[in-house]
Amino acid sequence: MSSTGDAGAAEEGTTRGESPLLGVSGLGKAYGDTVALRDVDLSVADGEFVSVVGPSGCGKSTLLRVLSGLEETFDGRATVAGADVREEGSDRVGMVFQEPRLLPWATVRENVSVGLPAEVDPDTEGARERVDGLLDQVDLGDFADARPGELSGGMAQRVSLARGLAYEPAVLLLDEPFSALDALTKREQQDHLLDVWDDRDATVVLVTHDVAEAAYLSDRVVVLGGQPGTVERVVDIGAERPRDRTDEALLDARETITDALGV
């Protein structure tokens, strides 16, 4: 059971005495007889960028579904800013899904405004400015009145990101948002995400199966594995930002992550 030791050590290293912004302990989730996650511990501090990697079917996406409040029942504890995700906790969480999941009939601006917090009336001038600001931030200022059908995959995913940011979540969850993009677009989008994260001092949990992506983007990488999925290892990425994709430290981290995945 080396996994528990690793996870525990990681927790000590990151909580720094304060309570974490996002805390998961002893999380287990089963769908009927199929156990997707078992005994998962994770804590993410304010402003951190944490990636969760693992092979398909290890429960990565399930973890995000639990954190975003889409799963009603699970074992253990999952909190955001101290509140259980089954109650107000999930109200503080925004999610960018694997697919953009935009409303096809609505303009890009309307789609982003779906993410605005409930107390903001999307029809006011202020809300509009806010949405347009977000669109500028994701480089889609010129597409505010376009429909999703007119956008490329990368652009649609950026609309989805802007929608997540409009929500002003305490934690932004991203579920393999770049997996459907070609290699070049993917790199652009990754750098884009880093810029946005930096600009907004956001806290991000990214799920991915791409080891290079996880190492390049994250402060910390949590390796999930096994069936049911559990934390195999937590890898701190020491490389300084802004990073170079060929940085030695990144390559080493990739090695460590790949080893932990047992590939």
Binding site: L70, S90, D91, R101, L103, W105, E110, V114, A118
Partner: peptide, 25 residues
């Protein structure tokens, strides 16, 4: 179902989700 999950994550509420998602859909 995917769109309804979006509605849930962003806490649109019953009336708003009917108006902005279900009816147009």
């Amino acid at each position: 179902e995917d769109l309804l999950e979006v509605v849930e994550v962003y806490d649109l509420g019953r009336i708003e989700s009917l108006r902005r998602v279900v009816l147009p859909a």
